[in-house]
Design a protein around this nucleic acid. Sequence first.
DNA 1: TATGAATGAGATTTCATTCAT
DNA 2: TATGAATGAAATCTCATTCAT
Lengths: 207, 207, 207, 207
Amino acid sequence: MNASYQRRKADRPEEILNAALDVFVRDGYDASRLADIAAEAGVSKGLLYHYFDSKEALFRAVVEQEVTPRLEEMTRLIGQLEIPIAQFMKQMLPELMAAVLASRAGVVIRLVIANGAQHPEITRYYFDNIIARGEAMLKALIQRGVDNGEFRESALQTQPMLLMAPAILCQVWGMLFGEYRALDNAALLREHMGLMVSAVETQATTP
Amino acid sequence: MNASYQRRKADRPEEILNAALDVFVRDGYDASRLADIAAEAGVSKGLLYHYFDSKEALFRAVVEQEVTPRLEEMTRLIGQLEIPIAQFMKQMLPELMAAVLASRAGVVIRLVIANGAQHPEITRYYFDNIIARGEAMLKALIQRGVDNGEFRESALQTQPMLLMAPAILCQVWGMLFGEYRALDNAALLREHMGLMVSAVETQATTP
Amino acid sequence: MNASYQRRKADRPEEILNAALDVFVRDGYDASRLADIAAEAGVSKGLLYHYFDSKEALFRAVVEQEVTPRLEEMTRLIGQLEIPIAQFMKQMLPELMAAVLASRAGVVIRLVIANGAQHPEITRYYFDNIIARGEAMLKALIQRGVDNGEFRESALQTQPMLLMAPAILCQVWGMLFGEYRALDNAALLREHMGLMVSAVETQATTP
Amino acid sequence: MNASYQRRKADRPEEILNAALDVFVRDGYDASRLADIAAEAGVSKGLLYHYFDSKEALFRAVVEQEVTPRLEEMTRLIGQLEIPIAQFMKQMLPELMAAVLASRAGVVIRLVIANGAQHPEITRYYFDNIIARGEAMLKALIQRGVDNGEFRESALQTQPMLLMAPAILCQVWGMLFGEYRALDNAALLREHMGLMVSAVETQATTP
DNA sequence: TATGAATGAGATTTCATTCAT
DNA sequence: TATGAATGAAATCTCATTCAT
C-alpha cells in the first residue's frame, strides 16, 4: 500500500492511456464509457480528469503517444540499409509492417480509421506526423531504388502510398471480418511487395 | 396534392434511408441522432419507428439496400467481357471502381468501415454478400487471365483482395484526410492495376 | 388519463416555470437541481429540455415571464392617476409596492438579487426592462408633482431610485433575516414614503 | 528566505481569507472552487483544510473576520460626536457609509446578500452582530437628535433601517448593474440623508 | 505544515424509444 | 400513418473532501 503509491503515481498516465486504447478499440470511441476506461485502468472516474481534460483529449493523447516512436524507428532503419532496396522490400519490409500492424501502433491505426472522421484535430495531427512523413519515407526509398538502377521509373515514385494500401486493408479487415476469416497479414504484405517489386524491377536484377 | 402525397407516402422508407445514410456518414453512427435523421427526411421521429424497429435496424437497412445491386451489375459485366482481361483491368476496371467509390455504394463502404466493428450482424451480412462474392469474382477474373495465357501463375490467384486494397485506401483516405489533400482515386487505381498487371503478364503481351 | 393529456400539454411550460421559480428561490440557483424542479413540476428531467435549452435558459425564462406585466400594470395605473401625487405616494404606492414584493414578481426580484451577478444576459434584460423603465416612471411621477406645485425641486428628481430603496431592503431582509425577525413591508414603505413626501412637499399642502 | 517564509506562514490564514472573499464575490459562493481559492492564495488545496474545516467554514470565517471591527469603529465614532446630529448625518455619515461600501466590509455585505440565504448560521451571526447592533446604533443616534431638540418625533425612531436602505440599494446595484451604469454611491447617500433629515428636522434648525 | 493525487457522489445534459392523440 | 410530448437510463464532467507522503 505504502510502497506502491509513489511508483504507481508516475505510471498512472500511461496506465490510463493503455486502458483507454483498449476500450476505444474494443467498443469504438463513442460507445466507450469513461467509467469502463477508469475501471480498466483501476482508477476512479475522477482521476481521468486529473490527467486529461476530456474524453477527446484522452483520444488525442492515445494517438499522439504511439505515433512518433515507431515511425522514427523505421525511418532510421531505412536510412541505414545496406542491402539492395528490392531485397529489403520483398523480405524485411513485409515483416516489419506486419509487426507494426500487430503492435500498439497498429491498434492506434485501427482507432484512427474507425473514429478519426469526427475528430479533425486528431486526423490533422496524424496526417502531418504519420501519413505525410511515411509517404516521404517511401518516396525516398523508391527513389533510391531508381537511382541505383534497381528500379525503372514508375508510378510508385508519385504514388508511394500504393505500397501501403494492403496494410490499410489488413487493419480494416481485422476490425470487421477478422472473426469470420483471419488474414495472414505477413503473407499478404509479402505477396504484395513481391508483385510490386517485380513490376518495377529492371531486367538486370531478375536473372 | 393528392397525387404527390401518395407518391411521397410510398417513397417514405427510401427517403428515410437516404437521410439516414447521409447523417450516419456525416456524424458517425453513434453520434447520429434519430431526430436529425427524421428532420433530414422531413418526417417525425415517431414515423421512423413505423418503418424501422430501432436505430440499429435502420443501419442494417441502409447497408442492405445498397449492397446487392452494384455487385450484381459488375458480376454481369465481367461475365460478358469480350476484351482481354489485362486490357479490362488496366482500362475499365479502375474507372468502374472509382465510380463505385463515389456512389452511394461507396458511401456505404465508408459507413461499414467506420462503424461496422460494433455491429457483427451487419458485418457478417456484408462479408457474405459483398466481400466473399467480390473476392470470388476477382479470383475468377484472374483465373480466366491465367487460363487464356495472358497472366502467369501468381499470388493474385490466392490473394485477389490485393487488387482491391487501394480502393479501401481511397475510402479511408477520403474519410480522414480528404480535407487536407484530396486523392485522385481513378488515377491511383489505374496506376495500381497497371503495376499489378505488368507484374503478372506473360512476356508475350508486353511487346 | 386521456382527458388531461392535451390540456396539460399546453400548461407544461408554465408549470415548469412555476416549479423552477420556487426551487430557485428556495435553494438558490446553483444549488437547485433540475431533478428537484422536475419533481416539483411533476415531470421527468428530460422533459425540461424539451421546453428549455438549459438550466440557464430556464432561469432566463423565469425572469422574463414575470417581468413585463407587473410593470405595465403599474405604469398604466400611474398614468391614469386622478388624485394628488402626494396622496398617491403616501397611501396607494406603499400598498402597491408591498403587493408586488409579496407576489411572484417579488420572488423574481429576490431571485435576481441573489443570483443575477453571474448571469449578465439576465441582468441586462432586467436592467433594460425593469430598472430603466421603473426609474423613468418614478421620475415622471415626481416631475408631475413638481409641475403641479405639490413638490419643490429636490434630489428626488435626479435620484428617483431613492423611493425604491426600501423595497430592495425588504426583499434582501426577507431573504436573509425574515426567519429571525419579520419586517412589516407595507408599514416600512408607508413610513418611507411619508418621510420622503414630507421632505419635498411645498408648505401649502401640509396644513 | 527564512524571514519571509516565517512571515508568510503566519499570514497564511489571512491570505486565504482574502483570496476566498475575492473568489466568492467574483464567482458566487456555489460556483467558487476551492482549487481557485487555493491558487489565488498561492497555497495548495490541502492546506485549506489545515486552517478551515470546510468550504462553509471558510465562508463563515470570511464573514466573521470582517464584521466586527468596522461596526465598533463606527459606534465609537458616533459616541464621541461633538457636532449636531443633523450635520453629522448630512455631511459625515454619507462619506463614512460610502467608504464602508467600498471597503472589504462592503464586499462582505455583497457576499452575504447574494449567498446568505442558504446559510442560516452565517446570516444568524450577521444578523446578531451587524444588523441588530447597527440598528440599535442608528436608533440611538436618532433618539439623541430627538432628545436634543434637533429632530421631531418620527417613524425613523422605530424604523431606523430606513436610513440604511440606500446602502443596500448601492450594493445590490453594484453587484448587478454596475457594469451597465455606475451609481455615485456617496452622492446618492448624501441626497438620501439630506431628504431624511429635512423630513424630521424641527423648524428651528432650517433657517 | 504542506502537497496534490485520488475518490466518489452528484449534477447537467442527451437521446433512443414509447405512447396518447 | 403520423406527430412530438414524455420518459428514463446513462454518460460526461465537476468538485469538496481525504489521505499518503
